[in-house]
Write a protein that binds this DNA or RNA. Structure first.
Lengths: 155, 155
DNA sequence: GTGGTGCATTAATCTAGATTAAGAAATGCG
DNA sequence: CGCATTTCTTAATCTAGATTAATGCACCAC
């Protein structure tokens, strides 16, 4: 198992990168984060010794996250493989969904979260009461009702 | 593979339950959610056909989530097993961490999130600038500084 | 039909946290 | 060392979304 040493400040992965790797931290400290459209940084995860850092996305999607080095670190680098085992593939999928959800909760406004939800799960929107969608988005039903009507007014 | 049919409104799992199962949705619609200390409901996930619902925690921990039935559903029920394969175990772990993170972001105030972070990752707190912790918590450095000093004042 | 229960909407008010700005403290670097 | 950069704090103001409350609807059960 070959490992590499990386220096503080080094950037291991950028948003949009393809062929991203999986990093197992043997020592030191990494972090993964996004930068949103307004230029704000949102840390997704700190990775001390023993943690794994990677985009929780399948190997063929471009990265959502930046990964950089907070403290000089020793890493084991692994290739991502397209997951063949269906059970494992489902787990990778779930991780991806949750990663997107966390980023959404940290960086998007109520209306942006709503639009994203409608685009991602158009069928669910039809099937559950609006208050449940609000609950999923982390806002109150009143707030959802309000932002939706404001959104309609501005167009 | 034996499957069961469950009715709308039926509760399959409650917060605190042990020996929870994994549900694969063949048809219908489930949801998983928490209820926080203030009695507010936060939906963690909707599960339509093809999705898996379960607490993303290892088999021996009590459940964080309620699971109930939104539309009459047909389910395949599986026992959770204590994951022997270390790679898989890590993935289950990551799912658990992200689940907790999502719930935290949806239901806790800035100071509560900070306290939880300090308790969960005491070493990280020492090693990174406060503005990065703020970024991880989804708040601004100014807000973190403020709530910390308010918290200190009230004791 | 009537009454009840849950859901959506609107409006008024409130508040946690964002934004902006400035200064002080800490850290790093030539 | 001394200068520059980053970090932290405080304070004033602003705003997205929470809270509270009232109204109208739809859907059921009886």
């Amino acid at each position: 198992m070959d490992s590499i040493t990386v220096n503080k400040g080094q950037i291991l992965q950028r948003k949009g990168d393809l062929n991203t790797k999986v990093y197992l931290v043997e020592s030191g400290l990494l972090r993964s984060y996004t930068i949103d459209e307004k230029g704000r940084e949102h840390i997704f995860m700190f990775a001390p010794k023993g943690w794994i850092v990677a985009d929780n996305l399948s190997a063929d999607e471009p990265a959502d996250l930046f990964i950089d080095v907070l403290e000089e670190a020793v890493l084991v680098v692994k290739e991502k493989q397209i997951e063949s085992e269906p059970h494992l593939q489902k787990m990778v999928n779930r991780l991806g969904v949750l990663q997107k959800r966390v980023i959404m909760l940290m960086s998007a406004s109520a209306i942006e979260r709503y639009e994203h939800f409608v685009n991602t799960y158009p069928d669910i929107v039809q099937r559950v009461p609006q208050r449940m969608i609000a609950s999923y988005l982390g806002i109150t039903p009143e707030a959802l009702s309000k932002v939706k009507s404001e959104w309609l007014a501005n167009r």
